[in-house]
Computed example of a mutant assay.
Amino acid sequence: MAASEPTTSSSASTAADDPATLDAPGDAHATAPTLDAAQHDRAQPSRFPFAGRIGSVEILAAVLVLLIFLRDPLARLLSAPSLATWTTVFVSVMVQAVPFLVFGVLLSAAIAVFVPRSFWARALPKHPALAVPVASAAGVILPGCECGAVPIAGSLIRRGVTPAAALAFLLAAPAINPIVLVATAVAFPNNPEMVLARAVASLIVAMVMGWLWLRLGRADWIRLPRRPDLDGLRRGEAFWSAVRHDVAHAGGFLVIGAMAAATINVVVPEQWLQTLADQPVLSVLALAGLAVLLSICSEADAFVAASLSQFSLTARLAFLVVGPMVDLKLISMQAGIFGRRFAARFAPATFTVAVAVAVITGMVLL
Rank of each mutant, 00 (worst) to 15 (best):
V93L: 11
V292L: 10
L366I: 14
V284P: 00
L365N: 11
R159C: 00
G289L: 05
F69A: 13
L107W: 03
V292D: 00
V266G: 01
A20D: 06
Q39E: 15
A131R: 01
V364G: 09
A302T: 06
A3D: 10
L365C: 13
P151Q: 04
C147G: 04
T350K: 08
P174Q: 05
A318K: 03
L328Y: 01
I360Y: 10
I331E: 03
L254R: 06
T184P: 04
A110K: 13
F100R: 08
A123T: 12
A291F: 00
A315S: 12
L313Q: 12
T184S: 04
R235E: 09
M207S: 05
F50V: 14
L294F: 10
A356E: 07
Q271A: 09
V357R: 00
P125M: 03
G339V: 03
F48S: 11
F188A: 00
V364H: 11
D327W: 00
A30C: 07
A32K: 14
R244M: 07
P25G: 05
N190E: 10
L230Q: 05
L107F: 11
A305N: 04
S9Y: 06
R223T: 14
D27E: 13
S82A: 15
G52V: 05
F351Q: 05
M94A: 12
G257C: 08
A277S: 15
T361L: 13
V140H: 06
E58H: 12
V57P: 02
A261G: 07
L320E: 05
L78S: 14
E5F: 12
I179N: 00
M1D: 11
P49H: 08
S136T: 13
A37G: 12
V115K: 06
P99W: 00
S11H: 07
H249F: 04
A3I: 04
R226Y: 02
P192E: 06
A164L: 02
D278C: 06
I157E: 01
I176V: 05
A358H: 09
S309F: 08
V132H: 02
A260P: 00
S10W: 14
I204N: 01
L203F: 04
L313P: 03
V208I: 15
F338Q: 11
M1Q: 09
A242F: 02
S118F: 08
H127C: 13
F253S: 09
M207R: 02
A62F: 05
F188W: 02
G144V: 01
A318L: 10
M94Y: 12
V89H: 09
V195D: 00
A12K: 15
V115R: 07
L60S: 13
C145G: 13
P133I: 01
I296A: 03
A286R: 03
L203Q: 00
A84E: 13
S241T: 13
V304I: 10
S295M: 02
N265P: 04
M209H: 01
S92D: 14
